[in-house]
Design a binder for these strands. Sequence first.
DNA 1: AAGTAAGTGCAAAGCCTTCGCAATTAGTGT
DNA 2: ACACTAATTGCGAAGGCTTTGCACTTACTT
Lengths: 137, 137
Amino acid sequence: MADQHELRDKGLRLTPQRELVLAAVRALEHATPEEVAEKVKLTHPGINLSTVYRNLETLENVGLVQHSHLGHGGVRYHASTEEIHAHLNCESCGTIIEVPIDATASFTQSLLDGYGFHTDLAHLAIAGRCESCFNKP
Amino acid sequence: MADQHELRDKGLRLTPQRELVLAAVRALEHATPEEVAEKVKLTHPGINLSTVYRNLETLENVGLVQHSHLGHGGVRYHASTEEIHAHLNCESCGTIIEVPIDATASFTQSLLDGYGFHTDLAHLAIAGRCESCFNKP
DNA sequence: AAGTAAGTGCAAAGCCTTCGCAATTAGTGT
DNA sequence: ACACTAATTGCGAAGGCTTTGCACTTACTT
């Protein structure tokens, strides 16, 4: 019921595929479209990958999910309700370190002051190297 | 001559294609492989796109060029001699604002202190909205 | 219960990038 | 200058990932 309203209040039809895509994004955190599809297939094996893509886009349009670009590779989706955080992406080992957005406040403030830029650190990862990779050759 | 030594000192053969790719990257700043190819074609129409890709990779391996991920889209190459800067990428209008790396020092230091993370702000753009887009609906 | 517009599945196409392979060519030694 | 060898090139094809067109299905409206 709650779910029904959640989607329908946004003007979306309530299809099993759509519900499952939303549920999968919420359960997985930082999931690629492919991973979302895998998850959905557990309960709805027939779902098509393009349906997943379309629903991710739709759900993003109404604000229920969002995507970020974490590594070099692909897009990842997360629920809008997740706590906002920046991602530090180690270019060597691929580890993702999550940083509470509070810890970045003074930096984003300085970009606002200096450049009038309203920063959204959640959307793109920050590249670099984690401690252990940095200490390796 | 200078160019010859520059490439050959790195252990690379001096082919017209390679020289032109390097020159194009230097001239264009933040160019996509496609743009580099276009530029090279002005003086060497026969060049193949895959040759451009391979040379960009090769030139990067020896440190003459580097790539960054600026927008949603593709990779962009710049000469290693360019001053290092972070990129603020407006998600609405696509504008890129360059920020001297000095201006980010205290932020990267705090990531080092707090997470042991060695940040490379030049490699991935920082997403957000520029002043004028922010003030629009 | 019927109508209609949104949503789905499927297959194909589109980008961007990489790869295999045969032909070419830069740099080396003669 | 000439021949040799390995690097480099062009070409075509293939590979990911994502989008699209279209006919069929289905959720919601009345």
